[in-house]
Design a binder for these strands. Structure first.
Length: 485
RNA sequence: GGCCCCAUAGUCUAGCGGUUAGGACGCUGGGUUCUCAUCCCAGAAACCCGGGUUCGAUUCCCGGUGGGGUCACCA
């Protein structure tokens, strides 16, 4: 039976390189064995749902050339492919679980749960639900539901132990005392990941669950769910997690993680994929530069390593430079015309530079900072005039990039949303707009003079902005004398 | 902290009981070149520690250490 695998991103932000990494392995495995690669959107979190995220994810994966056989846009026999459109299915499946006592309703309030956790932390006890509502009389529970009381549905974890058989790691044992009575249905009626994921994987005929190691410790819950439903488990495969240079899980705090960033800086998709592949897969010989097709042809689990690799952008650059060099000039020119000097982008740059250039030929040097990676701060730094110390400046910028990502408005990164967020930010932190805006301008542009700040930031782009500010903070911190003025 | 995963140069990896421990990026030196880049040559750089098993452990087993993940009505 040919395998069916899936990638199941959740539309909660920018498309992550980790998603691309996992998608690549799913894709290669499916293609190797003539199976199907399914794309499913896991949008069960109403709070974190981000407008436009799904589209960006699809577009990013498409850019990389990882095409799916079934998905929200192309359809398929096992649709719909958005979990928010499958709510009825989850409801149907949970009912018998509750009826048979394999799951139960829980009426505990957030307050009680918080208090419980505090107690457990103080007592250094195991964190987790204490089973308070486990033995509630079903009749009574039903009555409370009818009375309109809020509740969740939890999995009743039985005694014993649960074994996860992982293709890469062998048998992994968990004592069931360690497994929490996981919430399956939230009080808003939406399923949690755990429920939706298991139900969908089964109903979609997924044979191999290939995902990141972060899921390994919740896999016993999934195994238990398969058992509760009486279904056959898929094969589990947990890949190592991509890391930052300090070995922590790859994060935007420390690395550009948006696929869009790599696309907009001009990495070639095939090169990017090749680089990702080398992070966890090896050909077996000394070949490191190979195509997606070559990877597919050679794909075997014995060639996949399980340690979490550091995502090293320096090596990516080397690969990319190599491939650009290999490009015939006409091809290079076409690529640049399309991806660097697209007419939409030129039009946007023109709008901002129109009134600021004196000769036509000034255009390119004037807008040069909208292109490329980090900029050189050495010449602007002496001209930086703010009524704060550089240490304060570094600190506020770090806070800024941190907060902007958590703010729905800031995250949208349009001129309007940026301005609204930035002004509110100044008030909140008691900074003069003038000082903060100067820092943002210099950090993002490497210049003290630029087009209107928020238009500029929006056009520089979120990822490039974040990358430069991070670099700028580093520069500020290493400046010897605190310039006041 | 509990549970779980992982462990070859700075980084990504090959190795699957006996190897001068291989390749790639980066780094250093040299050559080609008007400069730079490319290209070529050379070099420094690794088996986490301690016990076993074995004639022999980087490789198998156990323990420790280190790193990571996870402990949500997020995925």
């Amino acid at each position: 039976m040919p395998p069916r695998v899936r990638i199941a991103p959740s539309p909660t932000g920018d498309p992550h390189v980790g998603t691309a990494y996992i998608a690549l392995f799913n894709y290669a495995f499916a293609r190797r064995h003539g199976g199907k690669f399914v794309l499913r959107i896991e949008d069960t979190d109403q709070q974190r749902y981000t407008e436009g995220s799904e589209h960006a994810i699809l577009e990013s994966l498409r850019w990389l050339g990882l095409s799916w056989d079934e998905g929200p846009d192309v359809g398929g026999e096992h649709g719909p492919y958005r979990q928010s459109e499958r709510l009825e299915l989850y409801r149907e499946h949970v009912a018998p679980l509750v009826a048979s006592g394999k799951a139960y309703r829980c009426f505990c309030t957030r307050e009680r749960l918080d208090a419980l956790r505090k107690e457990q932390m103080a007592a250094k006890a195991r964190l987790g639900y204490d089973g308070h509502c486990r033995s509630l009389d079903p009749q009574q529970a039903e009555a409370r539901v009818q009375a309109g009381e809020a509740y969740v549905v939890r999995l009743h974890v039985p005694e014993g132990k649960t074994v996860v058989t992982d293709r890469l790691r062998g048998d992994v044992e968990f004592a069931n005392e360690q497994i929490d009575d996981q919430v399956l249905v939230k009080s808003d009626g939406f399923p949690t990941y755990h429920l939706a994921n298991v139900v969908d994987d089964h109903c979609m005929g997924i044979t191999h669950v290939i995902r990141g190691e972060e899921w390994l410790s919740s896999t016993p819950k999934h195994v238990l769910l398969y058992e509760a439903f009486g279904w056959e488990q898929p094969q589990w495969i947990h890949l190592g997690l991509l890391r930052n240079a300090d070995k922590s899980k790859l994060s935007k705090r420390k690395n550009p993680v948006s696929i869009i960033h790599y696309r907009s800086l001009g990495y070639l998709p095939a090169t990017f994929l090749n680089f990702l592949a080398t992070l966890g897969f090896s050909m077996g010989d000394d070949r490191e530069r190979f195509s997606l097709q070559e990877m597919i042809d050679a794909f075997e689990w014995s060639k996949v390593s399980v340690g979490g690799p550091v995502f090293d952008p320096v090596k990516l650059d080397a690969f990319n430079a190599d491939d650009i060099r290999a490009l015939p000039l006409p091809e290079l020119q076409a690529q640049i015309a399309e991806h660097v000097l697209g007419s939409d982008r030129i039009a946007a740059l023109l709008a901002l530079s129109h009134e600021r250039i004196e000769r036509l030929d000034d255009f390119i040097p004037y807008v040069s900072f909208f292109f490329g990676g980090v900029v050189d701060y050495s010449t602007v730094l002496p001209k930086l005039k703010i009524k704060r110390t550089l240490a304060e400046a570094a600190k506020i910028l770090a806070t800024f990039v941190d907060e902007i990502e958590r703010d729905p408005q800031g995250r949208a990164f349009t001129p309007q949303s940026l301005e609204a967020f930035s002004r509110a930010f100044c008030e909140r932190h008691e900074w003069k707009a003038r000082d903060l805006f100067t820092l943002l301008r210099v950090g993002a542009a490497g210049r003290t003079a630029a087009p209107p700040l928020f238009d500029t930031l929006a056009l520089v782009g979120k990822d490039r902005f974040r990358m430069r500010i991070r670099d700028f903070i580093g520069v500020l911190k290493t400046q010897p004398k605190p310039a006041k003025g």
